[in-house]
Design a protein around this nucleic acid. Structure first.
Lengths: 312, 312
DNA sequence: TATAGCCGTTGCCGAAATGGCAGCAATATG
DNA sequence: CATATTGCTGCCATTTCGGCAACGGCTATA
């Protein structure tokens, strides 16, 4: 079912690989064939699509415009294919997800597992990365659904939902703070803290608040892995910071205690956004999973904010 | 700049014309070429796209799915083309509008004229039809922007804006009712009325209200043209009904008087919707005109509802 | 500075696709 | 029954596409 001209597909491969020969290998054709299609395309458009650097090819402005069109075409082709397939009862395809690390502990595995029991022929690809990389992966068409800290998103992405979760401190059960209901930042900084490196969005959430304080935190441990920070906190190394989403089951085993942050009487929010490409209609099975994801995150938002109500 | 396979374009032409030979004439190719491309396409998809009736071709369910995809592709190609063109400063293209008759008297000509003074290389195609036909024309990709009475719109259309205008009676200056500020339906029905035929949406707005009354209106004139009804009212033949949008300048020349309807103390609203295809990004010049249209209609809505304030 | 490796492009040739022409059977219209 | 129109199919020319080998340009490494 490949009824689009080779130029389109070749262009798409060249854009992704950044090289004609690499694209040719990917497509199992001769590099000359790819080269000629690109040249023909540039002649039709009337403007070069790539800048030829010695190291490979980079999109020009017009090239980026065409890339957007080609992505719209190919993604809509995917949707068409799945529409036809679902007509004969066969729901199958691949949902590709790009998300930040907080989701990997519980939300995503739970959801995927539960979805797979109902729709066994829908497979998944999940990739963990930073928030801005999530948006970039969506723009480049490398993922269908993105979950990231809600930054200002570019206009070619659509924010399907926005859920806010409380940021909190994570300490071992034996930690002196563990008996409190909530903690303030100052209280945490009296102990060794496990700080997030700037690659993690937690850093950007906490840094402005820390800067407001007079004291500087005692230097302890810096890490760029939510998982590592959590495990460190469980071993009593120090106080870690994250949303309860990233904690999940472990805290229910009572190894860890989650203490919502209380910053001068008001909670510290971490806004989680769910994104898809704006210029796109999702295949039915992808749309279906997206709905479940939104529902589940909404459910967690409700539950967790009910567990730790804050003064209004 | 035609880098999409012929199959796509041929399929599109066949769908529109409903005949292979007609499509071939349209495309200036032999009918055999078209026939073969369709057959090849059906083989690739693995399912017939058309039902062959003796008189021509009709889309199957799978065919309709493909038609949606092809429309998305070709319309997005248009957008890409205009994006490239606007890069070199040349803003040009055609905005295609499907709307109901109420717009032709003043809103649309004013807007188009004013837009043309600023962007002379943007041309327009406007077609007047019934509300449901407007939606159908959009779905079939025969128009970019649609303005119609706000019915329940199918999910593949997007309602860009919704503006409500008061329905009113239209009478000549010498008419006994002309001195009132507002009128009730009963008051109008005491005189000869110019009724809308069911093809006009005014019919469907008024009929339920008339049905509630005990008396049946005096049979007078029935018409299916807003323009005709207006001219008849101006000649004192009877009372016509429409929104003030359809009256415009003529009423300012004081030949006609517009009297907002007052149905048991509350106004009778006519909801006007602006629609575009949902799965589509508009070219920049189309988007620009769309914004002006929304702004202008919003302006009129504000002005006219301020001129005839109703009891809240 | 020489060399090896990778890059995109080009000439040549065979293979595949596309299009045009004429004619086919089937169906509707008169 | 005759005529016209429909979509489809051989046959053939033209165009497009892909593979192979080679060329010149560039980078990195020895």
């Amino acid at each position: 079912m490949r009824f689009h001209s080779p130029s389109i597909q070749y262009f798409h491969a060249v854009r992704r690989t950044g090289s004609i020969r690499a694209a040719a290998r990917l497509l199992n054709v001769a590099s000359s064939a790819v080269s000629r299609q690109i040249l023909k395309l540039e002649q039709e458009v009337g403007s070069p699509l790539f800048e030829r650097n010695a190291r490979g090819l980079t999109l020009t402005t017009v090239g980026e415009m065409l890339a957007r069109h080609v992505m719209n075409v190919l993604q809509d082709l995917d949707r068409f294919r799945s529409d036809v397939a679902s007509l004969s009862g066969a729901w199958h395809g691949t949902v590709s997800i790009a998300c930040i690390e907080s989701l990997t502990e519980s939300v995503l595995p739970d959801l995927i597992a539960s979805h797979r029991t109902r729709a066994r022929r829908v497979s998944f690809t999940a990739e963990v990365m930073g928030s801005s990389d999530v948006l970039e992966a969506l723009r480049r068409g490398e993922a269908d659904i993105g979950i990231a800290i809600a930054l200002r998103h570019p206009p070619d992405l659509r924010q399907v939902a926005l859920k806010r979760f409380r940021l909190g401190a994570l300490v071992a059960r034996e930690h002196p703070l563990a008996r409190r209901k909530t903690v303030t930042l100052e209280q945490c900084l009296a102990f060794p803290v496990i700080q997030a490196l700037p690659e993690l969005s937690i850093y950007h959430l906490l840094q402005p608040l820390i800067a407001q304080l007079s004291e500087t935190p005692e230097p302890a441990i810096q890490a760029n892995s939510i998982d590592l920070m959590r495990e460190l906190a469980a071993r009593g190394v120090g106080v870690a910071f994250q949303t309860q989403l990233g904690v999940g089951r472990l805290s229910r085993d009572a190894q860890l205690v989650f203490l919502p942050l209380d910053n001068a009487g008001s909670p510290v929010w971490s806004d989680l956004g769910i994104y898809v490409r704006a210029e796109r209609t999702l295949p039915a099975f992808t749309e279906s999973f997206l709905q479940e994801l939104v529902r589940e995150l909404g459910e967690r938002e409700r539950r967790e904010n009910a567990a730790y109500p804050h003064v209004a």
